[in-house]
Amino acid sequence: MSHTSERFDAQAARITSGKGFIAALDQSGGSTPKALRLYGVEESEYNGDEEMFGEIHKMRARIITAPDFTSEKVLGAILFERTMRGDVDGKPTAAALWEDRGIVPFLKIDKGLEDKANDVQVMKPMPGLEDLLAEAAGHGVFGTKERSVIHAANAEGIEAVVAQQFEVARTVIGAGLVPIIEPEVDIHSDTKSEAEAILHDALAKHLDTLAEGQDVMLKLTIPNQAGLYDDLADHARVLRVVALSGGYSTDEACARLAKNTKMIASFSRALTEGLSKKQSDADFNAALGANIDKIYQAS
């Protein structure tokens, strides 16, 4: 695969052994109005999708260009397609992240979730995936992220989620990128602990089917049993295990994460908690800096 291997190797080294966390800046269509509302932008302030995505891009650009958003504490950033295609400081977003800040760019590639079946939601089909992956590689994106959701301890459902994740992962690897496999376990599930045990075993089984050079990352809900995924973090094919906040408050997510020494954070809502469009740059930067610091400490 013809990615510039020097850049790829530098990014892989950063992800594998760097200190810090991965910022998730990838809310897409469905979750954008909510993300904007939390940021103090009401739906009456924009008309239609174009203006809505324009507002969220401004918010993301403001985060990316903030003084504390540096490689000192932020290892990587997960982008939404439109964010990747946009510019920050007059540069394509991925280049602005890596070249100016040393932050490794990732792209969210899933198209959302199917309806619940067997207590899980697998990913919807992704038409045009190969083209999107080629475009991402052209932008200098290092890896991808794709999310499914597990609602209960249903072995058949969990196997379906993991099998689909690895199928997509192989396509991503074939395009020269590193997939972040994200089978989220619902934090409100009555059988969360049992589901996590089943998920652990399914992931271990599928990881063993990967050949040398077929490296992946895992993005998992912080487990009830601290250290449950430590052996997966040590697996030869796993570059890093990152944690999603899954609806926990920033403080609770950080407290839970701190007990899992081989997981680092990849939080979205926790990163933007308390940020507002109406804030002065000084207030915005102080609030963002405090969030970054809190998540960094827990990682």
Rank of each mutant, 00 (worst) to 15 (best):
E167R: 15
I198E: 03
E196S: 12
E167G: 12
K192H: 04
L113K: 05
A163G: 04
Y248T: 07
T250G: 04
E273I: 07
E81A: 12
V104S: 05
E194Y: 10
A152G: 14
T16S: 12
A24H: 09
A155G: 08
S44G: 07
D49F: 13
D208N: 15
N118R: 14
G20Q: 06
F53T: 06
G18P: 02
A61C: 05
P127S: 01
R269P: 01
I158S: 10
L203N: 02
V120A: 08
Q214C: 05
T221M: 04
E42I: 06
H206C: 03
A155R: 15
H200D: 07
K19D: 06
I63E: 00
Q121M: 06
E45F: 09
T171E: 11
D68G: 12
G76I: 05
N118W: 10
T32E: 03
R62M: 07
T191A: 11
S71G: 13
E252D: 14
I292G: 01
V161G: 05
E50T: 15
S2A: 11
T250S: 10
A175H: 11
S245A: 14
A298L: 07
G246M: 08
D68K: 15
A258I: 11
H200W: 06
S2F: 09
D49K: 15
S2Y: 09
A202G: 05
K108D: 02
L113N: 02
I63T: 00
R269N: 08
D231T: 15
D283C: 05
D281R: 15
S280K: 11
A175C: 11
